[in-house]
Amino acid sequence: MTVRVDRYRCGYCGACVGVCPNVAIELVETWIAVNDELCESCSICVKICPIGALEVVGG
């Protein structure tokens, strides 16, 4: 399980990065990078996304 970013929707604001308890997300320049190794699919980032660009996938 991990989190997938809809790049067409994402506004690369970094809100998801700030709430990730596992430091699994990073806002690189204009895209969100998710580290699948660290992501525990807690879905806090999904709920926090102001624009609905994240979803938990797999597993």
Binding site: V46, P50, G52
Partner: peptide, 8 residues
């Protein structure tokens, strides 16, 4: 909030 709530 829920996913995408602010923009909606």
């Amino acid at each position: 909030s829920e996913s995408g709530m602010p923009i909606e």
